[in-house]
């Protein structure tokens, strides 16, 4: 009975209105998409598109990367904020996982689980993933954090209002509020170094070559061959962040 009361013409009008509304909505949203993801991977292969590789099999957990990062980038020693840090994962025989990172690994690690209980253990260095579709960039209300044209997520210190939205938005916990400057701070992939042809401080001091900085556009490059030769994964792929930090030998336990 209810159906009969709706006139044919009204039904047509609703259909047309829905279609028009849908078109209008996509028309409005699409340009915003272009603003949010303004930085695209350069099609010109001579232009860099920075990425990063970490070989968990090689990391010995010396924490020199975390130490060098603090010295290079003026990160306060205390309180314990880090742009990069190392975590020690211990997977016990009963399946439970213990994660430790005392002072980010700068003062070294101790194995606190008795040897008989350990199923496997490894170190995981963590840092900004320099996502292509960064949740943090999208969260910033003032445009103080952005993707540089070569794919590095940077912060505009003089423009940041310290609202902490990006700290919340980053699924990898890679941002902190600088206690002296009161603005957000994060790994810049040593942008001041890589743009001068040097490598990052963490890569510079890694004794086992577990860290690789590279240009994803450079098919002859070290990172490209690292990714080709290893079974590389990114952290939290289900979040579709477009992470450009590739791990070799990444266990499912790593969060």
């Amino acid at each position: 009975m209810g159906n009969c009361r709706v006139k044919q013409s009204r039904r047509k009008f609703i259909k047309a209105a829905a279609a028009a509304g849908g078109l209008l909505a996509t028309g409005i949203v699409n340009p915003f998409n272009a603003v949010i993801f303004a930085t695209e991977r350069p099609e010109d292969p001579t232009k860099p598109w920075w990425g990063y590789g970490i070989d968990i099999e090689k990391c010995i957990g010396c924490g020199r990367c975390a130490n060098a990062c603090k010295l290079e980038n003026d990160v306060p020693k205390e309180p314990f904020y880090f742009r990069t840090w190392v975590e020690q994962y211990t997977i016990k025989n009963d399946g439970s996982v213990k994660v430790e990172s005392p002072n980010g690994g700068i003062n070294g690690f101790k194995q606190t689980v008795p040897e008989a209980d350990i199923f496997k253990a490894f170190f995981v260095p963590k840092m900004c993933n320099h996502c292509h579709k960064s949740p943090c960039v999208q969260a910033c209300p003032v445009g103080a954090t952005y993707d540089s044209p070569d794919g590095v997520v940077l912060v505009d210190e003089s423009y940041c209002i310290g609202c902490r939205y990006c700290v919340q938005a980053c699924p990898y916990g890679c941002r902190y509020i600088h206690p002296e400057k009161n603005v957000v701070d994060k790994c810049t992939l040593c942008y001041h170094r890589i743009s001068k042809g040097k490598t990052t401080a963490c890569v510079e001091v890694c004794p086992t070559h577990a860290r690789i900085l590279g240009d994803l556009n450079d098919q002859e490059g070290e990172l490209y061959s690292f990714m080709k030769n290893h079974n590389c994964l990114v952290l939290k792929p289900h979040l579709n962040t477009g992470s450009k930090l590739y791990y070799n030998a990444l266990s499912a336990e790593v969060r």
């Binding site: 603003v35 954090t145 952005y146 540089s148 505009d156 210190e157 423009y159 942008y191 001041h192 040097k198």
Partner: peptide
């Protein structure tokens, strides 16, 4: 320079490049 390349101050890219180096390299 805001909006030159996207929703950010493009001069900030150069400012990030200009920071001083601490590690000289091997």
């Amino acid at each position: 320079s805001f909006g030159e390349q996207g929703h950010y101050r493009f001069n900030s890219v150069a400012e990030n490049k200009d920071l001083s180096l601490q590690y000289a390299g091997r």
